[in-house]
Design a protein around this nucleic acid. Sequence first.
RNA 1: GGUCCGGUAGUUCAAUCGGUUAGAGCACCGGCCUGUCACGUCGGAAGUUGCGAGUUCGAGUCUCGUCCGGACCGCCA
Length: 447
Amino acid sequence: MTRVPAGESIAPLSSGELAGKAGQTATLSGMVMRIRRLSWGAFVILRRHDGLVQCIVSGEGSDAILENLTEEQAVVVTGLVKEAAIKDPSINPGNIEIQVESLTVVSSPHSRSPVDLSKKVLDLHIDNNLDLRPLSLRHPVERARLRVAEGFCRGFRDFLHQNGFTEIHTPKICLAGAEGGANIFPVKYFERTAFLAQSPQFYKQMGVGIFERVFETGPVFRAEPHQTSRHVNEYTSLDFEMGFITDHTDVMKLEVELLRHSLELLRAEYSPELSLLAVEMPEPPAEVPCVTLAEAHAITGAMGERDYSGEPDLDPEEERLLCRYAAQEWGCEFVFVTHFPTEKRPFYTMEDPDAPGTTRSFDLLFRGLEITTGGQRIHVYDMQVEKMIRFGLNPDDFSDYLQAHQYGLPPHGGLAIGLERLTARLLGVENIRYTTMFPRDVKRLTP
RNA sequence: GGUCCGGUAGUUCAAUCGGUUAGAGCACCGGCCUGUCACGUCGGAAGUUGCGAGUUCGAGUCUCGUCCGGACCGCCA
């Protein structure tokens, strides 16, 4: 028998810690990203868990080190941490570099990389980029995008935790689809057919009866055969649901605070990634402009070629027009649109008694794209059953869901944010696949 | 599901009206270079032009088929 002690896990030196070690000897590990050979030796750029660091191999013994050194080897380096003027800010853990004293290769690649990871930008066609995802994501720019997505996820979690929400994990294998509209993926489930969850909607609402405020970050699945730069068939949904609201505007207020918190977290803790990606950060909004769908149509109609009045939804061109208008006229890159018609929103959406035919629902647009849908839900059992029937649904098929309403629910509402879309619009990348680690679309099921 | 567009070296792209041996950058290989940071410099190798048929004296280029992909729309986050 052996014993595994507590408190001895090894953590790599962070870039910040490394920067504080100038004048000392340090040991660090990393992958060789680039070897710049000169007559006297070489500069070796290591890619580490949180950034790049430049190592110098020179003097006695350098020939032996450099002889078999190749890109994408995993190495452990010991050397003197020296102050240095690094021109490239992405190789810049506090303007230090490592004068190598010893270098051990702990792993070597089997094959040479088909792409050049050491260039400033990865000059690679999207199809090759996605086919080579385990490799292409090693590029600092490519992986920084995923880090920003992580930042949004953290901001979402942190903020909701601080505001009394409980994180839940709901099933992704379900007996039926939640919302209608979007097609759902059937899966063979022993002797039955089940479906991949298109939304945690029902479970979130049940969660309101349990915890009052709940949230979840997880995958959702949409079987729609769309083929665009803003759709994938599996994406990460940042969902929350909260009880004791007056109407949908309480949900919107919380989202504005959530966005402020997330943007501030990114600014505070993800500045290397944001500067590497040259992100134009929106000012964390003190308030976000809000229009009804009818008002939105009036604005976009005046800007565009078409008359949108009476359309039950915003089309993509309108989303772009409205965001341009909001940025120019209201100085905000976010804009809410409310009061979508009853027939365009799911059966659980609360209707607005003050505006018949419309719902207490909203979308949030950011830089030309819909990134959030939310609203107040129906919490009264009889009202929900009546609306199901009106929508041509059989309440008996939803008896499990309706337990929540049957045994009492507070007035509540919530929303869902598309993580990849939000990240893509922040970064200004044209295709959300770049903000997805391993995207799933109509054509792509690998890697 | 609809409408457009594309496929040329490892990779990113050229190639004029259908006309000589399909070119260039990066990567790669070899040399040179005392601080690079998209290092520089000299040389070299690298191609079944997605696949198949057709038109033509001649096809990367035109036609048809086929495979693969991209963009937009519908729909959605």
